[in-house]
C-alpha cells in the first residue's frame, strides 16, 4: 500500500471539490472493499477523501410512498430498518445474506453498490486483468472462472458483481442519486452498473468526483418480495447465484412481477424477458420455468460454470413458487 494523504470532508460539496482537485484521489466510505484493495495493491490512491462522517445516514419516507436511503446508512442498519423489513423484505434479506455481521456494521449503502468484483485475477496484481489494467488480457476466460459470469460478459471480461443488496435494489426499481462537480443526477439502479463490453475497467456509469449520496426506492411493488442466495458455504460467502423477486398474483394469474439475478453477470441482472413472459400468465410452476428459461436462454456459460444456469433457473422458480403459495412458502412476507 503506498502512502497517501487524507482529508475528512465537512460536507458533500467539500468532498466533491476535494476529489475533483485530486486526480489520484478516492472517496473513503466504510472502506471494507477499498482498504482491502489498497492492501492488495489493486487501488493506490494518493489521497483519501473520507466521506464516512457525512450526514448521509438517514432512511427517509418520500412523498411517493417510497424511501430515500442515505449513502452512509450502514448495511446492518438498512437491513434492520423497520420500513425496509416491513415493506421491502427482499432488500433486508439480501443485505443480511451478504458478508458478515462485522462487515455489515461497517459497510455503507453507497460503498456496497461500488464494491468491485471478487474475480481472483482482478485481485492479484501479478497477473493480467483488463479491469485492473486495460488491455492486459483476461486470464479468467480460460482459467479459473467457476464463480464468474454466464450472462452479458465480453471477450475482455467475465467478472461478476458481488453485491447481494444491489440485486434486490435492481428488482425493486431503485434509483441512485449522484452528486458531482456538475450538480445532481439520478440514474436507475439497473442502468448504474455496466456490462463489461470493451471497457471492463468501468464498473458503473459514475463519473470522476461523483458521489453516491442516496439510493431511492419507489413505493414497494404490489404483492410480496423475497431474496434467496445459493452459495458453497452456509454463510459468509459470495453468491453462486441469487434471485430477488417480487410477485403479485390475482385470481391465479400474475399481475405484476419483478425478477433480478445476482452472481451471474457484471451487474445485477434484471430479468425483463422473464417478467414479460410472466405478466398475465398463470402463476404456475410451468409458467415460472418457462419464464426463467426464456431469460437464461441468453446465457453463454464458460467451461466450468454452466451449472449456474440451471442453478439460477431453479432458484428463480423456487422463489416465485414460494411467493405465489398462499402461505408464502419459506419466503413469506408480512
Amino acid at each position: 500500500m503506498r502512502a497517501f494523504a487524507y482529508t475528512r470532508a465537512g460536507d458533500v460539496d467539500e468532498a466533491i471539490a476535494a476529489l475533483a482537485a485530486s486526480p489520484g484521489g478516492m472517496f473513503l466510505g466504510g472502506g471494507t472493499n477499498l482498504v482491502d484493495l489498497m492492501k492488495l495493491g489493486v487501488a493506490s490512491p494518493g489521497l483519501l477523501v473520507d466521506i464516512g462522517r457525512l450526514p448521509l445516514t438517514e432512511v427517509r419516507e418520500t412523498p411517493d410512498g417510497g424511501l430515500r436511503i442515505g449513502a452512509n446508512v450502514r448495511n446492518s442498519d438498512l437491513a434492520a430498518h423497520p420500513a425496509v423489513r416491513a415493506r421491502y423484505p427482499a432488500l433486508s434479506q439480501a443485505v443480511l445474506a451478504g458478508a458478515s455481521g462485522q462487515i455489515r456494521n461497517t459497510a455503507t449503502t453507497g460503498g456496497n453498490l461500488l464494491q468491485r468484483t471478487r474475480c481472483l485475477y482482478f485481485q492479484d496484481v501479478a497477473k493480467p486483468c483488463n479491469k485492473r489494467e486495460p488491455g492486459s488480457g483476461c486470464p479468467a476466460r480460460e482459467g479459473v472462472h467457476r464463480d464468474l459470469a454466464v450472462l452479458g460478459h465480453s471477450a475482455a471480461c467475465v467478472a461478476t458483481h458481488p453485491s447481494d443488496m444491489a440485486v434486490a435494489l435492481a428488482a425493486l426499481d431503485a434509483v441512485v442519486h449522484l452528486r458531482g462537480p456538475g450538480g445532481e443526477r439520478t440514474v436507475p439502479l439497473c442502468g448504474f452498473h455496466r456490462l463489461p463490453g470493451d471497457e471492463p475497467h468501468r464498473d458503473t456509469v459514475i463519473e470522476r468526483a461523483e458521489l453516491v449520496v442516496a439510493v431511492g426506492l419507489p413505493a414497494p411493488p404490489a404483492g410480496r418480495s423475497a431474496y434467496r442466495k445459493a452459495r458453497d458455504r452456509a454463510s459468509y460467502a459470495f453468491a453462486l447465484a441469487s434471485v430477488a423477486a417480487a410477485l403479485d398474483v390475482r385470481e391465479g394469474a400474475v399481475t405484476d412481477v419483478r425478477l433480478a439475478f445476482g452472481g451471474l453477470a457484471h451487474k445485477p441482472w434484471r430479468a425483463r424477458v422473464a417478467e414479460e413472459a410472466l405478466r398475465g400468465a398463470p402463476a404456475t410452476e410451468e409458467s415460472f420455468v418457462r419464464a426463467a428459461e426464456a431469460e437464461l436462454a441468453a446465457a453463454e456459460p464458460l467451461r466450468d460454470n454452466a451449472f449456474k444456469v440451471s442453478l439460477a433457473r431453479n432458484l428463480a422458480v423456487r422463489v416465485l413458487r414460494d411467493l405465489a403459495a398462499p402461505d408464502g412458502g419459506e419466503a413469506s412476507a408480512p
Partner: peptide, 9 residues
C-alpha cells in the same frame, strides 16, 4: 441436499 440448488449441508 437442496434439490434446487445442490447445496449440501
Amino acid at each position: 441436499v437442496d434439490r434446487d440448488t445442490g447445496e449440501v449441508r
